[in-house]
Amino acid sequence: MASGVKPRVKVPKNAAAGDTITIKTLISHKMESGQRKDDDGNIIPRSIINRFTADFNGQNVIDVTLEPAISTNPYFQFEAVVPESGDFQFTWYDDDGDIYKETKSITVS
């Protein structure tokens, strides 16, 4: 696992059915672009998060493909509708095969 990777997610705890809610996500990751060289002139191999998905109760909200031009500590903000109470599942896919997950519950009244 890439070192020091920590996800952060902001989801409101409550909403009314059919409301639009704003979601923010951030994950600490160096997003090594594969374009840089080390002190000896060798290319530092690419090591990025290449995909991020957000789902709610098994249905997709957003599916993002990331390229090396996404900044260190990738940040996304987007909007979702929540038809019922349930769980958001956030998943980040690392080039090295690791998968980082975070879940947030929301109560819909």
Binding site: T20, N60, I62, S71
Partner: peptide, 29 residues
């Protein structure tokens, strides 16, 4: 990003529970 060595930056696919076809991120130029 047309001045980066690799032009592609990201692709956002919006799912059925997406409330708006909008998104924000932070990129390298």
């Amino acid at each position: 990003a047309d001045g980066n060595p690799v032009p592609n930056v990201a692709t956002f696919k919006f799912g059925p529970l997406s409330a708006s076809r909008s998104a924000s991120t932070r990129i390298r130029l």
